[in-house]
Every structure is written in C-alpha cells, then in structure tokens.
C-alpha cells in the first residue's frame, strides 16, 4: 500500500527535463544519421582504406591530406572547381538580381512568369543534365538547330568537345538549375524594403541607379549573403549535372572536386582518400562562408 501511495505521489518532470526528454529522439536520430557518419568519414579519411585491398587497411594519420598537396588530379580539380564556382556564382547573382527586380514589379502575367522562373528548381540535377545534353547534342541538338536557322552557323557543332566550350555550357546548365532558388531569396528580401524609403529617395531626386545602390542593395545584403553562401556550396558540390553532361571531360576540363571525389570513392573504392577530398570540400566551403559573413553580415541598414 505504501509503495502504491509513493508511486502515485511521484513528482512530474521539470520543464528542463521534459525538454530534453522530448528532444531526445530527434537528437538521437540526428546523432545516428548525421553526426556519426560525419565523424566516421573523418576517421576514415585518416586511414589507408581501399576496398580493393582490405588487408592493407591501416591508420595513417594525416597522410591522405598531405598527399593532396602533390596530387595532380586533386589540384587540377580544385582549380576547375574554383573557376566553376566563380562563373556560376557571378552569373547566378547577376541574373537572379535582375529577375528578382523584374518580378518585384507589378505587371500583367507576373504570376505566370514567376511560376515559369521557378520551374528549373523543381528539376533534379540528373534530369537537368540530360535535358541540356539533348539541347547541346552535336547531331540533333536544339541549340544547333536554332543557331543554324538563325543563320549563325553553317553546320552543326559538337559544343561539348572543346575544353572551354564544355566548361562554359556546363556552368550555364548549372546556373539554369539553381537560379530560381536565388531569385526566391532575393525576391523575399526585396519585398521587405519599405516603400517609404523609395518615396523619400525619389523626393530627394535620387535617380533609379542611386535608388538601387543606396536603398535596394544595402537592404539586400543579408539575402545576398544567404545566396552567396548556399550557391557557393552548391557550385562546389556540383556533381549530377556535370556527370551527365560531360562526365568530367574532355580531358579533365570539367572534372570538379566533387566529381573526382565520387569517382575516387565509388569507382576506385578508395574510401580513405575520397573522405579526405570530402573534408577538404567542407573546409573550403566553411572558410568561404565565414569570409562572406565577415564581409557582409554587419553591413546593410535594417533600421526602418
């Protein structure tokens, strides 16, 4: 009887304990599905670990990372990736800003244009790659057909067979796929700018360019920061579109670090080196993100 009474009078959990208890499943799942694989991949990156040679598996410390300094394939892929990020990011920011400014205006058909502009975002990278591959096809491609009908070329060209051509067209395909996301972010940023600011600037005889540079840009710095961080990560990790479109070729003209990483892990089954590549990609994107935050976060005027 005394036991039952004691049990009935058991104190309920406090708020703190309840919070932990309720979050515990989510924390456990995140730890199991996210934190553990991330930590394990770092552990693997410190190993000589190629599935083709299981008996040679051993802990080698940071040797995989040291080897990257003289790894020509890695250095070349890093160079290609850096250039790819610059081109994709530059094009994305400029085009997204223009599109967002246009879509921020009120005009007939705006809704339709907005829906169309968002369409590429819904397309998976592989499908995007296949679509552009069909468009750029040397024998039956729509691009060749269009240019020939416009009288700009005499015969069909194999656009993806030169290094610079393949690089540029791959970057364009990537931009097409990721542009809508940046447009949404910037459009959301534009919608938060109080119209009074533009009215005041107009009263002060500020022209369109000054209104853009003095009002719009400062208010867009935070959304721009998000765009820069996410698009840099996207471009650095770009894989599916490039894989389908060029496979990294011709030569290694479009072999980015992400492509090299997937090839190293899945084709060469070198999990040690491949994990080291992955951690280098992570470190680089983290550094760039911190740089962006340092440059842009405290700038911009958010006071109304």
């Amino acid at each position: 009887m005394a036991v039952l009474k004691g049990s009935a009078e058991r104190r309920p959990l406090g708020d703190n304990a309840k919070a932990w208890a309720l979050n515990a499943p989510a924390i456990a799942v995140i730890a199991l599905l996210v934190a553990y694989p991330i930590g394990y991949s770092f552990y693997v990156s410190l190993q000589k670990n190629n599935l083709k040679r299981p008996r040679a598996k051993r802990f080698i410390g940071f040797d995989n990372y040291k080897a990257l300094l003289s790894d020509q394939a890695f250095l070349s892929a890093l160079k290609v990736s850096a250039l790819f990020v610059l081109v994709v990011l530059g094009l994305t920011v400029v085009l997204a800003l223009i599109l967002a400014l246009v879509l921020n205006e009120r005009f007939r058909g705006r809704g339709l244009l907005l829906s169309l502009a968002l369409l590429p975002w819904a397309m998976p990278g592989v499908v995007n790659g296949l679509m552009w591959r069909t468009i750029f096809d040397a024998k039956t491609g729509a691009l060749n057909g269009l240019l020939q009908q416009l009288g700009l070329i005499d015969s069909y060209h194999a656009w993806l067979t030169s290094g610079s051509g393949a690089f540029l067209f791959t970057a364009l395909a990537q931009v097409w796929n990721t542009l809508p996301f940046s447009v949404i972010i910037l459009l959301a940023g534009l919608s938060t700018i109080p119209s009074e600011l533009y009215d005041a600037a107009t009263v002060d005889r500020a022209g369109a360019w000054r209104r853009f540079t003095e009002v719009t840009v400062p208010w867009l710095l935070h959304p721009l920061l998000i765009v820069l961080i996410l698009e840099t990560m996207n471009a650095f990790r770009a894989f599916d579109t490039i894989y389908v479109l060029t496979g990294g070729g011709p030569g290694d003209a479009t072999t980015t670090i992400a492509l090299l990483d997937v090839q190293t892990v899945l084709t060469f089954t070198d999990f040690g080196l491949g994990s080291a590549y992955a951690w280098v990609i992570t470190a680089i994107t983290l550094l760039i993100s911190v740089g962006y935050i340092g440059l842009l976060y405290r700038k911009g005027n958010f006071e109304v």
Partner: peptide
C-alpha cells in the same frame, strides 16, 4: 584506364 580516357580525349580534341 580512367586516366587513359582523359588523355586520349585530350589527344582527340588537340589539347594534348
């Protein structure tokens, strides 16, 4: 073999 593919592509496209 993978490296050879890249090299041969370089030869065919006159890059190498």
């Amino acid at each position: 073999e993978t490296e050879m593919h890249k090299v041969v592509q370089g030869v065919l496209s006159n890059q190498t």
